[in-house]
């Protein structure tokens, strides 16, 4: 896994991303042990402790990114939403706020009507004269 602090152990945030990557590529869900193996195979590194991965999965479950169900003696973990869904709802929160200032997010520039877009281009032409 890409390690931002060379030499040090991977940070929790990086582990969360790596685990989500595995889960997003396993639509049918997977077990913690499989995640350990896949991460080691992907990065060519030693296997992480299973407890570390379980901790990460717990955190992701608390953030509502991961669900789990019993499968025999272990749990099967699944991404709660696809990556595209997560991105789409982030964008929705930003783009479709009818009133920008209600939200904590203010985007760089709000969309404008066709008439205003024409005025904007006119103003720009003025600038470049």
């Amino acid at each position: 896994m890409a390690n931002e602090r060379a030499g040090g152990p991977p940070r929790l945030g990086e582990l969360e991303r790596a685990v989500m990557d595995v889960l997003w590529n396993a639509p049918d869900g997977t077990t913690a042990q499989e995640i350990v193996e896949r991460l080691a195979a992907r990065d060519g590194t030693a296997e992480l402790a299973a407890t570390t991965v379980l901790t990460v999965l717990d955190r992701l479950r608390r953030k509502d990114f991961v669900t789990r169900e019993r499968a025999g003696r272990a749990h099967r973990y699944r991404a709660a939403r696809t990556r595209d869904d997560v991105i789409a709802s982030s964008m929705l929160a930003v783009l479709e706020t009818t009133d920008d200032r209600r939200s904590a997010l203010v985007r760089f520039a709000g969309a404008v009507s066709a008439e205003e877009a024409a005025l904007l281009r006119e103003a720009l032409a003025e600038l470049e004269e």
Binding site: L95, E96, A111, V112, A117, L120, R121, L124
Partner: peptide, 12 residues
């Protein structure tokens, strides 16, 4: 501003 604001999108 013109490029981002001037694209069609939901108008607040």
């Amino acid at each position: 501003l013109v490029a981002i604001g001037g694209t069609a999108g939901p108008v607040p």
